[in-house]
């Protein structure tokens, strides 16, 4: 016969033990509640002086790191097209003037990674001309094959009314994905002018030559500042005087 020998390991009442158990649970719950969403106040050594802010329209930061190197590009300028100063993220920018003061804008924008799906991008452009969004199935019917610098890309054509001005507007946009970069070629402007310029736009796409990489001067969106060796050393650390405090 065995007899169970009851031993109280702690000279504490069961009530107190239960209290400590629940207390520890509440403590854990307390940990859940604090620390994560506090406004923080701290003092840090200076970061390198930023340049002028720039808007970088991009369909979101992909999970993978972004390239800071963009390939170069060459083209044959179609008649009537005029090169204009580059915007924040454009590698090429043109103005096309039509009759009666009508104008169209042509942009070339390379973005690292996928830069959103074709569906997202097309629906974004459709939103700009007040057209209803399309589904993936409808998208494949809309896509026109187009040669972009010797490679095959997709051309999408959207037409509608600019809701602000009521003017008839057309967007021709071609997408090419090569070597981890999504290239967007876009012509936006007056409906009739853009329709008339379509052959020139297709010719322009065909004439493109992708060259050796050149260093981009602009950083992609949300990219941490790149500042080389100057960040090294104790100067970069949080200063202890004044301190970093959670309040």
């Amino acid at each position: 016969m065995t007899t169970a020998i009851k031993v109280n390991i702690l000279p504490l009442s069961p009530g107190f033990l239960a209290f400590t158990r629940w207390a520890s649970l509440f403590l854990l719950a307390g940990l859940v509640g604090c620390g994560r969403n506090d406004v923080e106040v701290y003092r840090v050594a200076k970061e390198p002086a930023p340049a002028q802010p720039a808007v970088m329209p991009s369909p979101g930061r992909p999970g993978a790191p972004e390239a800071s190197i963009m390939p170069g590009l060459q083209w044959n300028l179609p008649p009537g097209w005029q090169e204009v100063p580059l915007g924040a993220i454009r590698v090429a920018s043109f103005k096309v003037a039509g009759s009666g003061g009508k104008v169209a804008d042509v942009s070339v924008v390379p973005l690292p990674g996928q830069a959103g799906s074709d569906l997202d991008n097309v629906n974004r452009w459709r939103g700009q001309v007040n057209s209803p969004p399309v589904t993936q199935q409808e998208l494949s019917q809309l896509a026109q094959a187009v040669e972009v610098g010797g490679q095959s890309g997709q051309l999408y054509e959207q037409a509608g009314e600019n809701t602000a001005t009521g003017e008839k507007t057309r967007i021709l946009a071609a997408i090419l994905r090569r070597e981890g970069i999504a290239w967007f070629f876009k012509m936006t402007g007056d409906d009739a002018l853009v329709s008339e310029q379509k052959p020139a736009f297709v010719g322009f796409l065909k004439s493109l030559v992708f060259g050796a990489p050149v260093m981009r001067t602009e950083l992609p969106p949300s990219h941490p500042p790149i500042d080389g060796m100057s960040m090294a050393g104790p100067g970069r650390a949080l200063q202890t005087d004044g301190g970093r405090t959670n309040r």
Partner: peptide, 21 residues
Amino acid sequence: DADNVIAIPQRVLMGSKVIHR
């Protein structure tokens, strides 16, 4: 030499209309 930073987390921004520090 240094910046004084106040960092307001996204959740606070989402949940507040007025933030005074």
